[in-house]
Simulated scan of single mutants.
Amino acid sequence: MRIAFLGPVGTYGEQAALRLCELEAIAAPQLLPQVGIRAVVKALAEGRCDAAVVPVENSVEGGVTACMDALWAHPELRVGRALVLPIRHALLGSGPLEGVSEVLSHPQALAQCSQWLGDNLPSALQLPTSSTADAARMVAGSRFRAAVASLQAAEEHGLEVLAYPINDVVGNSTRFLLLRQGERSLNGPMASLAFSLHANQPGALLEALTCFAHRQLNMTRIESRPSKREMGEYIFFVDLELPSGQEPLLQALDQLRPLCEHLAVFGAYPITQLDQA
């Protein structure tokens, strides 16, 4: 099975892809690294792979906007499983810590280590990259550059571990989704959907959310993203717990659908929480 992930090798996305393959009993997967989260989703949408693994939410920095935008653009995709992966960042380099003047990483990783970087490398320039492992690749051999990435990335790119762990919050974790094509299931402990409303008027969102509240469906996440069509127009992403099976969800969707301009249901799925390292 061909599985796309945010590359290159050594990313947390690769770690998540391998663990999700274990959970799904996928033997000998062919992992296909992509440049950028949108490229990961696009590879699946265009049929160049059989599944895709993307980060959707971090416990410190919140939703991954590139993932939400990509999902909204491809409502035909479904979520097969979710994995919550503990994140332990390291500062990697080839020179001494005191010589570091530039720190490279994915913007989310830099944000998750902002306090540590401010305290220990206050003068270092922070430069964004497409992934943590790409940052590790770019700093290899440099005496003044360092990367925020995983211990695995240090091994992959021959870097020294200058400091570990450096994430500001001990419980830092990221939720990854395994995406697939095909018919979606509504059976599972968690469901994800997104919708836009017909009109921006008082009480419109409240009316939509009442569809869930009346059926005792707990929202574990709600986030908004601009529609990119006009100012003040938003898309809402919602995750729901389904303790009583799919029937309450089906009823809520029947009530919600007439209120929406567009409704994308990404399905229900199992979710696995890995223990903190």
Rank of each mutant, 00 (worst) to 15 (best):
I87G: 00
V9P: 06
N200F: 04
Q181E: 14
V161Y: 06
L274D: 11
R221P: 04
V56R: 03
Y12R: 02
L92M: 09
M190L: 15
L71Y: 06
A153W: 13
A52I: 05
A16Y: 06
I37T: 15
G99I: 00
G158H: 14
L206E: 15
F266H: 09
A27W: 01
A16F: 03
D254W: 02
Q201C: 00
A51P: 03
S227D: 15
Q152M: 07
R180M: 05
A199G: 00
L127W: 13
F176R: 03
F195W: 12
D50E: 14
F236P: 00
I271V: 08
E230S: 11
Q255M: 03
H106E: 13
V148I: 15
Q273M: 01
T220D: 05
W72G: 00
A268Y: 07
Y269M: 03
A149V: 06
D239W: 10
G7M: 08
P165I: 08
Y12W: 15
L197D: 07
S150P: 13
V148A: 03
V169F: 07
V9L: 01
E156D: 13
I37M: 11
P107C: 05
L159Q: 09
M68Q: 13
S131R: 08
D254E: 15
A28T: 04
T220L: 03
A16M: 10
G93A: 04
V139C: 02
A43Y: 05
F5E: 11
Q15G: 01
V169R: 06
I166H: 00
V265H: 04
E61G: 04
S142R: 01
H214Q: 12
L77T: 09
Q201E: 12
A204M: 14
S142L: 00
E223Q: 06
P96C: 03
Q112Y: 07
T210W: 06
C211E: 09
A199C: 07
G158E: 14
L104M: 15
R180L: 11
S123C: 07
Q115F: 00
H214L: 13
R175Q: 13
A213V: 12
A51L: 08
A252D: 06
A147L: 10
L242N: 09
L242H: 11
V265Y: 01
V84P: 01
L249I: 11
Q273H: 13
T220V: 10
A208H: 06
R229E: 15
L23N: 03
E156I: 12
E57T: 14
F236L: 00
G95T: 01
Q216F: 00
D134C: 01
G182C: 09
S244I: 08
K228C: 06
F176G: 01
